[in-house]
């Protein structure tokens, strides 16, 4: 451990702990998930980077949204995302999450995921290779270091807008808003 690392640990231990133990939600949202099993098993071994799949959303802080998102899946994604404790990071996986990819004209897939939930980073390509996942993870470390992986803060701040967008596509949602706007503003003011 070099001096730089050590200073970071002394200054912000929780941040470093979050950074090096990314627990990913075990949720196969799209076809990008085909490269996740090789990544987490022996050959590519994502545990070197501290990425481990976790059974429940309550224990996870990384959400890999692997590929296209159909309307029905969007509901499940929002539900899962809102159940994750803060701080939480989302990575859009493959071109489908960026602009719809090859399903740009499909009647059942939403095109831009960041209209509905905040995204901290994207991995381009179809399929992104396991190496690309590791590049994304190391990049996410840098973002966390610089406090730029602030998707969950943006979600809190602009919750009303996100919720409005979600309701535009999903219609009636069967769970109440997780933040009242005033509460969200208060938390944002307190924690920045």
């Amino acid at each position: 451990m070099d001096r730089n690392q050590l200073m970071k640990w002394i200054k912000a231990p929780t941040k470093m702990a979050h950074k090096y133990s990314l627990n990913a939600v075990y949720f196969c949202t799209g076809c990008g998930v085909i490269e996740v099993p090789p990544t987490i098993t022996s050959r590519w071994d994502a545990e070197r980077f501290g990425v481990v799949p976790t059974a429940t959303a309550r224990q996870a802080n990384l959400f890999l949204i692997t590929g296209y998102v159909s309307v029905k899946t969007l509901r499940a994604i929002i539900r899962t995302y809102e159940q994750m404790p803060e701080p939480k990071y989302t990575v859009g996986f493959g071109s489908c999450t960026i602009n719809g990819g090859m399903y740009w004209d499909s009647y059942n897939t939403i095109n831009q995921l960041d209209k509905y939930i905040p995204i901290d980073g994207y991995i381009a390509g179809c399929m992104p290779r396991p190496e690309a996942i590791f590049v994304a993870v190391t990049h996410l470390w840098t973002l966390i270091d610089k406090d730029m992986a602030d998707g969950y803060k943006r979600y809190r701040k602009n919750y009303a807008a996100y919720r409005a967008n979600q309701e535009m596509i999903l219609g009636e949602m069967e769970w109440p808003p997780i933040f009242q706007t005033e509460v969200a503003t208060a938390i944002t003011e307190r924690e920045g």
Binding site: Q112, D114, N158
Partner: peptide
């Protein structure tokens, strides 16, 4: 007679992007 491109333009493209600054 169902036009997917029209439908995407009418529904998914009409959702506004989130204005982060506002």
């Amino acid at each position: 007679d169902f036009d997917t491109k029209q439908y995407v333009a009418d529904v998914f493209d009409r959702v506004p992007p989130i204005d982060e600054e506002g």
